[in-house]
Design a protein around this nucleic acid. Structure first.
Lengths: 185, 185
DNA sequence: CCCGACCGTTCCGTTTACGGAACGCCAGCG
DNA sequence: CGCTGGCGTTCCGTAAACGGAACGGTCGGG
């Protein structure tokens, strides 16, 4: 397992401060907000925010929380995939975002990425399992191997996963999508 | 549920260090691990961990990350719900899980809950905005006010959100669903 | 042309989170 | 019994994250 973990103070920690900085800066500029304004709204010092975005500081939970709230996003939105379980196949790179288990079924919500032109097959899962994808970017071909569907940005696709199935990025762009896997109880 | 969410304020510090402490302690004892052992594995001081679990400290991102790694969980598992912007309407309770902004559009992914029997309307959003729901539990009726769709567990529903639309839990159970809102650029 | 407003960075004194080393406590054991 | 080893908490000096106040740079208006 991994518990030979990053115990050291190596600055190259997977989800370390170096990664959250650019993320904050992106969310801020996306909203057309200046650093000073965000600092004001979050009630943190400009120095704090500047250092945070530059990755030269190691922010406290309070600081992160204040910034996330001022940006209107969940704290988890600032912590890019750092430490999220990641499943990397031949072509498909999936990151488990969340598990919902309080319904009559269990749902796993993934973010999926497939490089342009790549494809990958997956063996059958347990009976009754279905997969649901919403495409953000690119052209996704997915579903039963003999009868796949195709979906572009904004489109939705679903298929039974209790038979061999596959995923492919058929267009010239990388595919970005959300994938929801439903496991009936 | 407009995007003009409550950016400012954050009256008291919700989801602050007080919430992550018990969470860490739960995950640790769940694994039958002693405080000293976790501190050793995470390469943090026992004092740090003790104060963190007690909620008397305001841990840094490095500390949180080291502890999460030593517990073998994603950092997000330590801060679940804590500080997620929650949009609570008349009937619909939504929690923003994640924002995707690297495609040709921006996506906001929510978890949605509607008490059984309740309903709520939403005004039109900007042109081109669409909403996509996947139902986990209950019976969701949603879409254009004059032509809503209905979806049960495992089913999918989408509609244009640039016109007034609504959500309702029409069955005898609460509705749990994921809602993806797509904002074209 | 100068001036004021705002931007993002840097400097600085204060606050505080950090790890190490105590402490008291409770088993297990010779 | 005392001795030993591990537990969780507390104390303490140091390192660093914090907010406030500078700084230089860029606009836009008078």
């Amino acid at each position: 397992m991994d518990s030979t973990a990053a115990s050291e103070s190596a600055p190259a920690l997977p989800g370390g401060a170096a990664h959250v900085g650019p993320r904050v800066r992106a969310l801020r500029t996306e909203r057309g907000m200046s650093l000073s304004e965000l600092a004001r709204r979050a009630s943190v010092g400009k120095a704090t925010l500047s250092g945070l975005e530059a990755g030269t500081r190691n922010p406290t939970l309070d600081t992160l929380h204040a910034v996330a709230a001022a940006l209107g996003v969940a704290l988890t939105a600032l912590v890019v995939g750092g430490g999220s379980p990641r499943i990397r196949g031949a072509a498909v790179d999936m990151e488990l975002l969340r598990v919902f288990d309080d319904g009559p079924a269990t749902y796993e919500l993934y973010r999926m990425r497939i490089p342009a032109g790549a494809e990958q097959a997956s063996p059958a899962h347990h009976p009754g399992v279905t997969e649901h994808a919403t495409v953000f970017a690119g052209e996704l071909q997915a579903g039963q191997l003999d009868a796949p569907g195709v979906a572009g940005p904004g489109a939705y696709l679903e298929w039974a996963a209790d038979a061999p199935h596959g995923y492919a990025a058929v267009g010239p762009e990388d595919v970005h999508a959300s994938l929801l896997i439903r496991y009936p109880t």
